[in-house]
Structures are given as structure tokens and as C-alpha cells.
Nucleic acid binder design. Structure first.
Lengths: 235, 235
DNA sequence: CGGCAGTTTGATGTTACTCAATTTAAGTGG
DNA sequence: CCACTTAAATTGAGTAACATCAAACTGCCG
């Protein structure tokens, strides 16, 4: 396995950048001993609810998601993680998470010893800034999904999810011709917006018939963005 | 209007305590000039989405809630606030909130100048700890409500909300005979769990018929806690 | 070519919404 | 203390949205 660089490949992004810059004593070419890498296969469990972990994870490459598993087999996907994302801000302060997380695609993670991260928070104001940003983004995202789940129809929720993911992707890379790589099965969409995968299929089919979007084999092609926004925006 | 004490009456609770202890130079008997009080009537808007504010608010007395207003008149209640609660951790770092908040009952607030709060974060590790706790509690609460909204039936969601509020109340005061003051209209419950108030009324009526709970004029009396938990717990 | 996971489609069932009327509770002024 | 007013809660009937069950179809990989 080859890593693109010794430290976190996404150090340009918020949290990872602050964390690594906070250790001035460690040159970028050396990986400090309180950091380690880990790869994960699609579907592999990364965080298990209630299971204590010494480490805080940042997603370096691939997609992952946080979720809450119910005993009846159903699960709620709480949010999707893209490269550079922290596996929840709370994980920095709580060793026993109240959620689970798993990889969606082949993924690479950076694990940081929690005690080290906390120590750096106390010393480096940039860490606080980065964590605050992460916290704010998570809260906004959670508030939005909650509103969609509680107040909007199936079509609106699915459109909302697409728009939200498109934003996350666009914040990280240049988009050409309104094509987005979304490595999701319809079941993932269903688990995120609180519908059955059957109904998700129907709604996506409807969108397709209306010339709104095309979604297959992990690529979302937006054909009528204004209309998608009209349906999916929270306002 | 008389305030129970000069500084925040709930300084024993997390955030407020850390904030006020962080200013060693100010004796408790004096109110520092970067803090002010405010009262709010039931239904009064405290935070307006997208409207910049210099202050960070803590609820001192009464109930309030955060919500997201949609243009079609519907709204999602994101969470309820009880005395001692911060009006969202993100408000400490972002001056332009992406949510609104209003008082549910007669309420008293403590407003703190954001710049002062941030400065104290940089200097006092206890502030970070308090904010981290607040952030963690908010995230857990949001994850739970999201799971309830996405994956559970009307009965389960309402039972979940009751249990969750009972926990919040129990964390602040001693409960006798399973009686809880919940100053909510059924419309608030509906807006929180994503149902119509008509359906909330039906479900509560059902619960009443089953001898599960009694809920009227702002008091919840739990008659069969194990059964309520069986229905409403996320597990 | 066969097997498998994921998607699509159809038929039917259930949950929760809508609309509208009625009842209850909580004031308010005489 | 009693009419009157108003907001909230309850009840009923009809409907829409989404779930469930099951079968057929598609694309992919060995």
C-alpha cells in the first residue's frame, strides 16, 4: 500500500492541516509516532458504538459514513464523510462514541492518538479554530437533514440529499458538466433519508423520466439543476 | 424584574460555570460589562436565522427551542433548551446562525459578548472542556432525533421525545413520582417529531388509553415507564 | 454460461395526512 | 359567579404517501 505522502494527504483541509502544523517540531517528511494509517475495505466497520478507542480518525481518501444501528436491522445514516473529514468532532473529546461508522468505498484513514490531539488543542488556537469549523459544519448538516426528514416529502428529501452531497464534492474538487461521483447504492440513500430502497428507486425513476437527473453506477449527472434545487432546497 | 443572582443563575452547569470562573478578576458579585441579561416572553424570537449577532446566549430560566423555519410555514424543531443550555455550540464561533430560536415559556437569558467568550476559550482550558461537552451533548441529541425521524413510527418517535426530555429534566432536578413539567403544546411535539398535531393527539390518546402516560396542561405523568421505554428507546 | 447483488416494476396494505366539525380548557369582562 | 371569547385538543371520514411483498430484470464477474 502506498500513501501519497507521509502525513495526512489532505492536510490542506481544515482539521488535518491545523493538527499537523501544530507540531512544529516534526518536519512534514516524518510521520510522528502519535499518528498511524489504516486502510479500510468497502463496508468495513471503522467505529463501533460504545467501543472505546484511543484514536481520532480523519478520512484521507474514499468515502465513509456515520450511522446509528437499530436492533431491528434498520439503520439511520447520520452523514457521509469525504476526504478531509473528521469522524465527528465529538470523537476528539469522547472516547466512547454513540454512533458507528463504516467505509463506503476503499478508504484510507489517518488515526491520531486522542490524548495528543487534546494536548494540541490546549496549546494551539488553530486547532480550536479547525475544530470549531468542523463542529459548525456538522451541526449545520445535521440540522438540515433533520429538517428534511421531519418536514419534507420523499422527492424533496432525495433531491436535498443529492444537492447536499454535490456541495460537499464541489467544495473539494472542480466539477465538469454537472457530473458527480457518488459511490452510493440506493440502499444508502434510503438509509439516509428514511425511506425504503424500493421507494428510492421509484423516485429516482421519476426524476429520470422528468429529465431531471441520471443516476447509475455511482455517477450522478444533473440535467436540470434549477428544478432540482426548486424541489430539494430548504428555504 | 429580579434576577436570582448577579451572574448567571445556572453557573453550576457546564458552560456557564466555566465561562464565569474563567474571569478570575471579576468577583461573582459583580456582573462584568461583557455580559448582559434579557428576558423573553413565550413565543418571542431570540435568534433569527442569518441575522448576525454579537452575543452568545445561555438560557438561565424557562424553556426555549432551536428550529428551522421553512417558507411553506412548516418548521422543524431541532432541539429543546433547558436552563443552563447554550443556544448551540456553533453560535460561539459563527456570528451568522443557520437556525432560529424562540422562547417556549417566560424565559431569562444571559448574553455574552462573542469576542470575550472566544478570548476566554484561548486562555482557559476549562472553557474548551465545557464547549466540548456541550458539542458532544448536542451531537448525541441530534443523532438520536435524526434516527427517530428517519427510522421509527409515530408512536415510537413520540415516546422517544418524551424519554429524551425526561432525561434532560432529570439531569437538572429531582423527579418525584414520575411527574415532569413539559411546557409544550402538541404542536411543538408535532414540529419536533415530524408529524401533524392531529396525529400527535391520536397517539397520545392511545398512550393514555393504554395506561402508559397522562399528558395535559404541561405535565407529563408516566404510569408505565418500562413500556414507554420499550416503545421509545433507540437500541 | 451461471450466479449474485442491485435495481425496477406491480399489486396490495398501512400509516399518517387533510379537512372539517366538535369538545374542552383557559381566560376576560360584566 | 356567569356568559362570552379564544386557543388547544379531540374525533371522524376520506385520501395520499409510503411500506411491504414478491417477481422480473440488469449488469457484472468468475
Amino acid at each position: 500500500m502506498d500513501w501519497p505522502c507521509v502525513t495526512c494527504p489532505n492536510r490542506k483541509f481544515g482539521f488535518c492541516g491545523a493538527l499537523l502544523h501544530s507540531s512544529e517540531e516534526t518536519p512534514f517528511q516524518q510521520k510522528p509516532n502519535w499518528q498511524h494509517y489504516r486502510a479500510a475495505r468497502p463496508g468495513e466497520q471503522i467505529i463501533v458504538r460504545n467501543q472505546v478507542s484511543e484514536d481520532v480518525f480523519v478520512l484521507c481518501d474514499g468515502w465513509a459514513f456515520r450511522f446509528f444501528q437499530l436492533s431491528n436491522g434498520r439503520r439511520q445514516i447520520l452523514n457521509f464523510l469525504l476526504p478531509g473529514d473528521l469522524f465527528s468532532t465529538v470523537a476528539v473529546f469522547e472516547e466512547r462514541p454513540n454512533f458507528s461508522a463504516q467505509a463506503l468505498t476503499e478508504a484510507r484513514l489517518s488515526g491520531f492518538r486522542r490524548s495528543e490531539v487534546q494536548a494540541r488543542c490546549a496549546n494551539d488556537p488553530r486547532m480550536i479554530t479547525a475544530l470549531a469549523e468542523s463542529c459548525a459544519a456538522e451541526t449545520d448538516s445535521a440540522d438540515g437533514l433533520m429538517t428534511a426528514l421531519g418536514q419534507r416529502s420523499a422527492e424533496e428529501r432525495i433531491a436535498y440529499l443529492f444537492l447536499h452531497l454535490m456541495q460537499q464534492i464541489a467544495a473539494r474538487s472542480v466539477i465538469r458538466e454537472q457530473r458527480y461521483r457518488l459511490p452510493l447504492r440506493q440502499q444508502h440513500i434510503a438509509d439516509a433519508v428514511g425511506l425504503t430502497s424500493v421507494h428510492v428507486s421509484r423516485v429516482i425513476g421519476l426524476f429520470r423520466d422528468q429529465g431531471l437527473i441520471e443516476f447509475s453506477s455511482g455517477v450522478l449527472q444533473v440535467l436540470n439543476l434549477p428544478e432540482l434545487k426548486r424541489i430539494g432546497s430548504l428555504d
